[in-house]
Amino acid sequence: MTFENGREVLIRVRGLAKSFGGYQIWDGLNLDVYRGEILAIVGGSGQGKSVLLRVITGLVKPDMGEVELFGHNAKTLTAKDRVDIESRWGILFQDGALFSSLTVLQNIQVPMREHLELPQAMMDDLAFLKLAMVGLPPEAAHKYPSELSGGMRKRAGLARALALDPEIVFLDEPTAGLDPIGASDFDHLIHKLQQTLGLTVYMVTHDLDTIFTVCERVAVLADKRIVRTGSPIELQRHPNHPWIEEYFCGERARAAQSGEQPRRLVV
């Protein structure tokens, strides 16, 4: 376990560099993800927010730099350690990325089947439990992904990400494409689950409402690295960077923040 400022660091990224087709997207990117926090990664388009998620989860190889997962260096992991680590995180892709040939219930059971040997009755019980926890009705269990709405697919994807009770979940634009009510419900859900399961949440987002209602810490990707981290309020009060100023002090940010007081979640 790695500690920094008295908090346990689950994921540590140091000196990351990556270029695509001659264009360098990061140069010396550093980031820490602490246990139990809800961290939002923001940044303009083309800054490589989603690519960073893919690098951390091992889907894309960086050109340079180190990624440390739960205290293990990602480069030197053995295949077995890698599988262990994969069962300790859950990933929600943008449109859920549910397997289209399986029902929602079977989708949720895929990680259980792959990593553990649980009796079928127990997998059913746990899958129904996860389904209820992400706020889906039990009738959704036997439906196929194509029969669900976008918001329901995201919830089902989240239930699959939570199947093994991971320590950290990665969310890629969790509220994109949802209507404001659906998006706000999803924010509440993430906050609730974080409280209930003691999750660490890493999310890539554009949604200022999400940032102001649920995120404790925001990391800003700009100028090929993480330029600042801090609470949303802190970044808004002292932007110290033109992009952050535009993002957190623009009209939309003011609108999102003006509703902040009454909507601040209390648990």
Partner: peptide
């Protein structure tokens, strides 16, 4: 406190009726 939140949530969510296939 954190165990209580989880156990209560599981109690509340686990009791839902299930559709018969």
């Amino acid at each position: 406190e954190s165990f209580r939140i989880l156990i209560e949530e599981v109690e509340r969510r686990g009791s839902a009726e299930r559709p018969k296939l």
